[in-house]
């Protein structure tokens, strides 16, 4: 079988003896079918018995062995080493999933992840008769609403790459939203409205998603969390739970502007989303832009698209969600 010599530069930190983390390099002959987990094992068995990492099932189910390779977060037991060298070359840097939360070597503290996960109530809430005559049936159509949201293994890959989580510790993060979505569409659950209100909270909820699509790239099970986050946004409006705030007006503002002008009137969007006082916050920037001729006052409105009547007609027939409140 094909073999290759690969250098692994490995993040090492043992708080009992190290003041600061450091990197150590291990050079190995690696076979074509080797997984990243095999490398972690070999470091421990062949080089340094004190090397520490989490692992358990080796089948992509327990979600415990995620680490970063050259910045890419991977589930060690599913990731082929040669596929990584194809992208990054023959020097691979192994680091814990989140260097800021390291306990020892590859092991990190995941308490924030689990706390937020718990906050979305990741379990069925239902007031059923304990001795029912018939079981609570779920039709195939109803079950299909869950999409693939119930195959998440809580490896926290999506959570660890989420930029919003990185700078806002209150934000629940993609994995918790996937779980929230899974129970919101579960027809047996009796807690739908409360669940939607949980994910609808400013700072914590879906409105702080930055839409970077990183979560969709790193899920080892292909769950595509941002797809569920979009569906949660839709649920908030569909179930009439939207609050009158900057985030929701920001979403509705697009439709209003397209309906009126065909294009997005950026000045209107800021005024409509932020309100008068909120708009004041942007005056400094607006002035700077004005000074540089980026914007003109009152506003450099482009001409409306041709066939505006077509656009209005299309919005009339294709709208699936109407705003229930007049904002």
């Amino acid at each position: 079988m094909e073999k290759k010599r690969i250098t692994f530069k490995v993040f090492r930190f043992n708080p009992a003896v190290d003041d600061l983390p450091h990197y150590e390099s291990y050079v190995m002959e690696v076979k074509k079918d080797a997984l990243v987990l095999d490398i972690l094992n070999r470091i421990k068995w062949e080089f340094d018995g004190s090397f520490t990492y989490r692992r358990s099932c080796r089948h992509g189910i327990c979600g415990s062995c995620s680490i970063r390779v050259n910045g890419k977060v991977v589930l060690s037991c599913k990731e082929n080493v040669f596929e990584l060298t194809d992208i990054f070359g023959d020097l691979l840097v192994l680091e814990p999933q989140n260097k800021q939360k390291v306990i020892k070597d590859m092991v990190i503290d995941r308490v924030d992840f689990w706390n937020k996960y718990t906050e979305v109530k990741p379990f069925l809430v239902a007031k059923y008769d304990e001795h029912p005559e018939v079981e609570a049936r779920v039709s195939p159509d109803e079950a299909s609403l869950m999409l693939d949201s119930d195959i998440c293994i809580q490896c926290a890959n999506c959570y660890s790459v989420c930029p919003s989580v990185r700078v806002n510790e209150k934000y629940y993060g993609p994995a918790a939203f996937v779980k929230a979505y899974r129970f919101i569409v579960d027809t047996r659950d009796h807690n739908k409205k409360e669940r939607i209100d949980i994910i609808n909270e400013p700072e914590k909820g879906v409105w702080d998603c930055v839409k970077c699509y990183k979560c969709a790239e790193v899920c080892p099970k292909g769950v595509n969390p941002i797809e569920k986050i979009t569906l949660l946004h839709n649920q908030v409006f569909k179930e009439g739970r939207a609050k009158n705030n900057v985030a929701t007006r920001h979403a509705i503002g697009f439709k209003k502007s397209i309906q009126k002008n065909g294009f997005l009137d950026e000045g209107f969007l800021v005024r409509y989303s932020e309100g008068i006082f909120g708009t004041m916050k942007h005056l400094r920037e607006a002035f700077d832009m004005f000074r540089r001729g980026k914007i003109k006052m009152p506003w450099n409105m482009p001409s409306k698209p041709k066939k505006m009547n077509e656009i209005k007609q299309l919005i009339k027939v294709a709208s699936k969600i109407e705003c229930r409140r007049k904002w």
Binding site: T230, A251, K255, I258, F263, P305, I311, A318, K320
Partner: peptide, 20 residues
């Protein structure tokens, strides 16, 4: 052409965003 609606129109009304 109309505005693409960015991710925000998709958040509000995914189908409308698709049709536009």
């Amino acid at each position: 052409a109309t505005c693409c609606g960015a991710s925000h129109l998709r958040d509000f009304d995914a189908f409308l965003s698709m049709v536009l």
